[in-house]
Design a protein around this nucleic acid. Sequence first.
DNA 1: AAAAAAT
Length: 752
Amino acid sequence: MPKKKPVGGRPAKNYDPNYAAKRPAGKPGSRSEGHRGFRAADPNAPKKARWNADERAAKHAGRYSDEPRAKRSDDDRAPRSFDRDDRAPRRDNDAPRSFNRDDRAPRRDNDAPRRFDRDDRAPRSFNRDDRAPRSFNRDDRAPRRDNDAPRRFDRDDRAPRSFNRDDRAPRSAGRDDRAPRSFNRDDRAPRSFNRDDRAPRRDNDAPRRFDRDDRAPRSFNRDDRAPRSAGRDDRAPRSFNRDDRAPRSFNRDDRAPRRDNDAPRSFNRDDRAPRRDNDAPRRFDRDSKPAFRDDKPAFRDAKPPRTFTRDGRPENEGRASDFYPKRDAANRPGFSGDEDVVLERLEAQATTATDVEGVTFQDLGLGGNISGALAELGAASPFPIQAATIPDVLAGRDVLGRGRTGSGKTIAFGAPLVEKLMENGGGKRREMGRKPRALILAPTRELALQIDRTVQPIARSVGLFTTQIYGGVPQGRQVGALQRGVDIIIGTPGRIEDLIEQGRLDLSEVSIVVLDEADHMCDLGFLEPVQRIIRETASGNQKLLFSATLDKGVAALVNEFLQNPAVHEVAGEDQASSTIDHRVLVVEHRDKDQLIEQLADREEKTLIFARTRAYAERLTDQLEDAGIPAVALHGDLNQARRTRNLEKVTSGRVKVLVATDVAARGIHVDDITLVVQADAPDEYKTYLHRSGRTGRAGKEGVVVTLIPRSRQRRMTELLGRAEIEADFVEARPGDDIIEGLAGRMTLADITA
DNA sequence: AAAAAAT
């Protein structure tokens, strides 16, 4: 029950210019001279009472126990619980905001907060890529607060939503397309907060708000195991290309000298030096990772795995390749390459398309139900990576698999995983509260969802159940599914750890662990949670690690958890066989936004990558303001909007998606024909994953990277590591090359 | 810098 600005009749004090004169005697007034409520402090007033320790303790009694709480002024915020079921007690994104409302309520009687709020957002528009982006870092608000230790108020301040409350009702009422989804209450409430408070900023926000808010997401309620959401995600790409190499040079010792001389800015070979400081911890961490050690047989002794055929066909002799290509120049001792790390050679079994001809999923050892489910998903016959890894997975081996983006990795681990569970499942099937027996970890929620869309129908075909465990949504439904009993968990690390700590998730019977985007899961920030989670599972169980850019980074996990893994990759997947056209535009910084606008102004789907959430958000606003419908995808959005925005692009209702690297890996959206990197990536692997969002299923795609002149050298090196050839062209807004890339001119004519 | 849990 938000406070409302009074309408007509009796004006509240803050709306009454004459209030100061009418103010009841004896009540305190403002101490600010010049404020209309100003009243000089009374020198004879009694000293203000202070809490002593006991009183304070009494006041807080019950707050952290079952004992009823002391009555607090904000207890009336309870109402939010009545429109949601499983979220009432503790949960989720909007909970903090509700606190916020109450804390702010006293201030909200006038319009001041709104102005502050706008001020808070203003810095964003100045955000260049190098600015601290996060809106809740607001030093400018600090002076206003004198009472609150907890930082989280900061965050809360930013969503002064009570106006929006008012906005919201009329909005949703007038909207047909929302009604059918009204069962999705969980998603709705959180949604309105963030967005709405931005409204004041714009003059023409109405159409845009429609764009963003009018649809409930659909993917949340998937814990229920509706078997029908046949995943279209994983099947598309049937091309046999390989997109990436893993080589990384290993020496970074040169960075100290470079960092020291900040002064000679003009001599910087690239613009990287000034940023170095940020990287330090991470690089340190990487360097400190266990290098490949000869005494660890895991990688060095990886034996050529069994052939994928079961009918006695000859083994693939002589196909073994270097899993990690040599980078001779960088490999020499003493050579200081750049920050990338060269990987130890690793024998991997390479499978080619011809090896797979005529092979069926049943040949590989999958049962009829599963093969049928795969066919329904559009996978009539196995891709090379699937043919390569499925037999080894069925044989119970640990497997490392590398296949280019969109080569069918999800089925490569998902299908045999289900087969194994079914074979071993026996009597426990469908038992209430049974413990999960397989775990699939992914780095982002969207990817976890997408994996589930593929794995769930396969699992259901043999009577197994999956559930998603990821953050940003109420946990009640997830916990409920666990209590009923599931076989396969698909999720992200944070919520999984959370539920383990709460005692609601027991992984002790997990016999298969899958890490999708395994190299990424070994990056700083992911590695440790992942290690902790894996340690919760049955020791010695089967591990499957997959990624398009699987590299040395996974050694930390391999050495601890894997035993004699089979290592597979797909041969012939080089950039020459790719369907992607790579371009680098050398641009003036001041032209960048306009160029992006011109590139995005096209009929087909465009994906724009920005380095920060703030920049992604700003670009989205800018495109919208220019009349180009666009949606954003980044971690500052609540999960409901993330899902909804992605769905808008998947369905084609919006053609432009502006994302951070949350969308770089694994996400499949049909028919993205242009990827624009508004900021160049720092790592070649990121480049490969981002560009892998286009050119899928053998279709053509274009990747455009915008860089400043100062970054040319660094970009050249990155492309070298990625083994990508790309033209560098200087470009200004309106140039033919821009028109060509956007499809308004024929690109061939321009470049020919 | 981003991502991944909330609070």
